[in-house]
Nucleic acid binder design. Structure first.
Lengths: 355, 355
DNA sequence: TTGTAAGCGTTATCAT
DNA sequence: ATGATAACGCTTACAA
């Protein structure tokens, strides 16, 4: 396979009886090349199936039209939509998006970051990754524009568009308290290699503390065959979940919560998918969400409004993240000197039927 | 911003008082470098924040450890899981995965393909893209290993691991017929720039024809504010849906189907998400799936088993796609001479409660 | 409008 | 164990 050698620019040049540089120009500045010459070149390209070597091009140019997004390996909910639309917008501006999925594994982020930076993309876009000191070093050393999306941060050296997840969690928790719920359980991922998760947890505990409530931690590492019984007064419950079974995890977890001696009055879920699973459990088992128990999602993926009763969650205008994000990326990819900008997207509680 | 120049290998060499080539070796063959020298080099790297330029490296080496996946811009259901796990497996073999999302827009695939091929990845992985003659040309000219995932194909020049979507659709349709359903409606995306969708449609019509039924086409371009009323005897209904509103689309479409004069006895959905939306409509509106109407999903995303009643769909062992896919990619990325291989993953109908 | 010369940052090959 | 030299395929700067 692949016996024949790949054609190079020199081959096109010979074929079209011009200098290599003219072929180069035909690609980058066709308006500078005579129409007839252009045609010969195009013919030669078509005939040989020439594909310009971006690597060689990049070596000289030291920039590319690729925007690299660093994302969680499993892109659930809003992530997928944001990537889809962002990619569409940037494409229209001549940029090609590529994603580097990061495993939730020690060190993977740094490996990816280093590799990616070595390819000198036009810009690096981060999706709620937790940046260790080392990660930040890498980013700084890369000396290329970095935009953080989804979480609002004021860290210098990177721009950001997103909302304050701490505040958001706090708002949702306060909402539950306002509705009269007292014993509130927070369900989040126990493996929180993600700044967003950490911020949300902080927001929850803060709101509970402000309300004078005790915070009782519990981490359930394996919710399928767990030995430990949950204690009746737990407020916070971290579950270690495979992202690919979030719905089931929510379903099963709700089963346990419902059977606690001292069942929580409301549950706040850091993941909409887990929340939907839990909602479904309630529906099947005759527990009326919004009456018998309060259920609250987070970002507000599409499903939260398709399910009946509809899940209370955040009113999060993620379209603004896309629009502002695209604008920032474009500006920074084009003009390296653009300075940092931090845009906070406002969120509110979308009070629906489950609370 | 980014004032200072990025350090290069020569800078490290000077700093560590060695030749450039020794620095190079320190990265690629550290065992050939004296321990002490290695330390000086590492110190210099740490001090300057040097990041090897993959572009320059690639120019000389003409290969990289990057595997590029060409995926739909919005990765729903199983796609996401496959990418996540595949990326994990390949990472353990020293390969870094990056995704190129393709918009469902004329020509975008070819733009992406050409760009991507120019970066000379170790392998190209295709996710159910419809390859035009031009796309195939590009792939052939790229002269690099190509693996098609998710759809079984026997096209030469690329390996493949997947199932036969035509057969699958046919199986599901036959299942519905076997259950006694006669008036069966098939709901699929009207914009089918995707070989998978085309195959599924073919499988459905084939099964209906074999059973002696008439095929009645209808394409509904805009299901939110459509002028045309659907005809009562339609068998096939293509809906043009924004991928980000699949659940709602299913919900609303089911509302229409349910109110046809001559309501279909069963509905086969090419998208699980649309199917779940439809199921939810039935639940809310007192239509009993499996009794009043047959509902059938496709791939079998997690939700199909969390919803009650559980959705009938395919029993699709996608883990095998991941395992076999990773094996093939690895073999081809490592050894360019590996020959084509076509693996057909068997599927069966998972008869559940909605049929 | 087209061409010449030089060099982008790395590694393969061959020395020492 | 380390070094010198010559590429890799393209583009920038300048020249004609």
């Amino acid at each position: 396979m692949n016996e024949q050698k790949r054609p190079r620019m020199a081959d096109i040049a010979r074929e079209a009886r011009v200098n290599r540089i003219t072929v180069s120009r035909a690609f980058s500045n066709p308006e500078l090349v005579a129409k007839e010459t252009l045609e010969r070149i195009h013919a030669a390209v078509a005939k040989t199936g020439y594909i310009p070597n971006q690597i060689a091009r990049g070596l000289k140019a030291d920039h590319s039209n690729i925007v690299s997004l660093v994302t969680p390996a499993y892109m659930s909910g809003v992530y997928g939509q944001i990537v889809e639309q962002l990619s569409g917008l940037l494409y229209r501006s001549g940029l090609v998006v590529n994603l580097f999925p990061v495993q939730d594994v020690e060190g993977h982020l740094n490996v990816v970051l280093r590799e990616l930076a070595g390819w000198r993309p036009a810009a690096i876009v981060l999706f709620g990754a937790t940046l260790t000191e080392e990660s930040q070093q890498i980013i700084r050393n890369a000396r290329m524009p970095v935009v953080e999306l989804l979480n609002y941060s004021e860290s210098s050296g990177t721009s950001s568009v997103g909302y304050d997840h701490r505040l958001a969690a706090s708002l949702l928790t306060s909402h539950l308290l306002d509705q009269g719920y007292r014993k509130i359980c927070y369900i989040h991922s126990a493996r929180a290699a993600n700044i967003i998760n950490a911020d949300r947890l902080a927001g929850f505990t803060e709101a509970i503390r402000v309300a004078g409530g005790p915070i009782l931690l519990r981490s359930e590492r394996d919710q399928t065959n767990n030995q430990q019984q949950m204690a009746p007064r737990d407020h916070i419950c971290g579950i270690e979940l495979k992202s690919t079974t979030a719905f089931h995890a929510g379903f099963e977890l709700m089963g346990k919560l419902a059977n606690w001696e001292n069942r929580p009055e409301a549950v706040l879920f850091a993941s909409d998918m887990v929340a939907v699973g839990a909602l479904q459990y309630c529906l099947v088992n005759g527990i009326a969400p919004g009456k018998d128990i309060g259920l609250c999602g987070f970002d507000g993926i599409e499903l939260t409004s398709v399910m009946r009763p509809q899940l209370t969650c955040l009113d999060f205008p993620y379209q603004r993240v896309i629009a502002e994000g695209a604008r920032q990326i474009l500006a920074r990819a084009t003009d390296q000197s653009t300075s940092d900008e931090h845009i906070r997207i406002p969120v509110a509680v979308l009070h629906r039927e489950t609370t």
